[in-house]
Amino acid sequence: MSHLPKSNLWQTCSACKRHVHQGQWGEFNICPYCGHYQRLNADQRLVLLTDTKSFTALPPVNIKQQRHFPGYTVKLQEAQEKTGETEAFLAGTAAIKQQKVVIGVMDSQFMMGTLNTVVGAGIRQAIRTALSQRLPLILVIASGGARMQEGILSLLQMNTILAELTKLNEAGILTISVLTDPTMGGVTASFALESDFVFAEQGATIGFAGKRVIQQTNSAALPIDFQTAERLYRQGFLDAVIKRENLRTYLGRLLMIQAGDLNE
């Protein structure tokens, strides 16, 4: 047989460009040379955040009509083959440090986690499940914003998700957002920042307008830490910036406080 190594054993760090052996990433997928967090898919994220074998996915979203934007079907197929998922959002019930929650994860590897009719329906389903089962809702966000290929229907996910989220607030259900790299565009202008607690993973890029667009319309150089989690924290938009390896502990501690709430 071939003396060549098996494929995919070596990968390139997206930040420092050095070659990293599979075994060197460690359980948190952090570059051993520069410390950069590699982007995770939904499954990897769930493994890091939830108790072993506690995750049960919600029923899949029923896709009724597909938008016919040129080249879109091919793009979707490519993303499905690459990730093994049908869309850019995965949600279910799970336990975090023995406390039951509804958790939804956006997948930046699937068309950059963009918000479309199916992702929006999935998020609303997660919110409704949290409401009907009276469980805290944790949304792990990674998104480039609204998915252009579905036009106005992508935009309308923002107000419809917010409408459902308001019902959780009225019902006294805890909501937590964890913003990961990248969290941009319409997602930040709707549900991402509207939770009771908003955390960001260290090093995440978070913003509304894209850097390139801002650069095109403004001649001045952008601040060096522009649209970083650290800058947003300093400006008071985030409750904490957390290392990847500490996220689960943080969530667990916050969930635990609920045991001290008076139950009517």
Binding site: T188, A189, L193, E194
Partner: peptide, 9 residues
């Protein structure tokens, strides 16, 4: 982003 989200809500 937050100002827009608040206004939509």
């Amino acid at each position: 982003n937050l100002a827009i989200a608040d206004a939509i809500t």
